[in-house]
């Protein structure tokens, strides 16, 4: 008979002020809150750090915000130094949007194929292949772009091969996994009855796909594209290797250009911390950060629409 012993112990536990389960609960709670607090502090300090550095040139009155955003000329060593970031804004925007425009149709088609047409082949071959694409380091993409795409463009089009188009092609392959996997998720979570409902009305598979499935999943597909653009906007290394890095607003897709990210990586090492040039680079970083916020905001809006 061990019942009395058991009773003794629970009685003893009841007498302690903090029995074991209360202490465990408390410990777990503290641990979770600490982690969250640390994360929030980290995020906010990064934002604060970038903002304080990036706003410095404007606060100190060295240059105005319009000078940076609308200026055409980037001459940090000039007399007086000119910091016009319009070429980089234009470069970043054009490579990202063109990359998304190239990747979107491929991504959709791959997703439609994997979910609607050949689910088995899609799951066993295509999906792993596309996931693999996501795991390739960006320097490898840049290298491939440099040794395949740039020479190809040089041989077939006017110009040196380096430029917006080369950057956009490399980026489109890099963001393909993002676009595809989000589109695949959206398509595979469609209620099963929808397809059958459409078939039963006499629709063919293609009619069902483009008249019913694509419109129904459109908000999610757009989410994928925006995330893709966001990734393309932030990519530095691969773009820098193929874009040519010429700080002027490009007039054609085959001309050399530069992006916000590529100019930061190129010039960061050549500047002294605290100098105007260095701080203006932080301003560019701030612009990148704000763009990211914007993309996150758009994605949120789209998700809310998708839920309805």
């Amino acid at each position: 008979m061990n019942t009395p012993v058991k009773e003794d112990r629970t009685a003893g536990d009841r007498l302690t002020r903090y029995p074991k389960h209360i202490r465990e609960d408390w410990f777990g709670r503290v641990y979770v809150y600490l982690c969250v607090a640390l994360m929030v502090v980290t995020i906010f300090s990064i934002v604060w750090f970038i903002a304080s550095k990036g706003l410095n040139p404007f606060v100190s009155g060295a240059i105005g915000i319009p000078d940076l955003l609308l200026g055409h000329v980037w001459k940090p060593e000039g007399e007086p130094p000119l910091f016009g970031a319009l070429p980089f804004l234009a470069g970043s925007a054009s490579v990202s949007f063109i990359a998304a425009a190239i990747a979107a149709p491929f991504g959709f088609c791959a997703a439609v194929f994997m979910t609607q047409i050949a689910p088995k082949l899609g799951r066993t071959v295509l999906q792993p292949a596309i996931e693999l694409l996501a795991g390739i380091p960006s320097v490898v993409y840049g290298f491939v772009g440099l040794s395949v795409i740039v020479p190809f463009l040089r041989d077939n089009f006017p110009g040196q091969g380096f430029g917006i188009l080369a950057g956009a092609i490399v980026l489109s392959i890099m963001i393909l996994p993002t676009v595809t996997s989000i589109a695949t998720d959206a398509l595979s979570t469609l209620p099963a009855g929808l397809r059958e409902g459409s078939f039963a009305l006499g629709a063919t598979r293609w009619q069902t796909i483009y008249r019913l499935i694509l419109p129904t999943t459109l908000p999610s597909l757009l989410t994928g594209i925006v995330l893709g653009i966001s990734r393309a906007f932030g990519e530095a290394l691969a773009v820098q290797m193929v874009i040519g890095n010429a700080p002027h607003v490009p007039r054609s897709l085959l001309e050399s250009a530069a992006t916000l990210t590529s100019i930061i990586t190129l010039e960061m090492g050549n500047t002294v911390g605290g100098s105007l040039h260095n701080n203006v680079l932080w301003s560019l970083a701030l612009i990148l950060l704000l763009m990211t916020f914007l993309f996150v905001f758009i994605v949120r809006m789209l998700e809310r629409r998708a839920k309805r």
Partner: peptide
Amino acid sequence: GMVWQKPNPFHK
């Protein structure tokens, strides 16, 4: 025509 157990209206 066919009608299922679970109503499957299109998202329209």
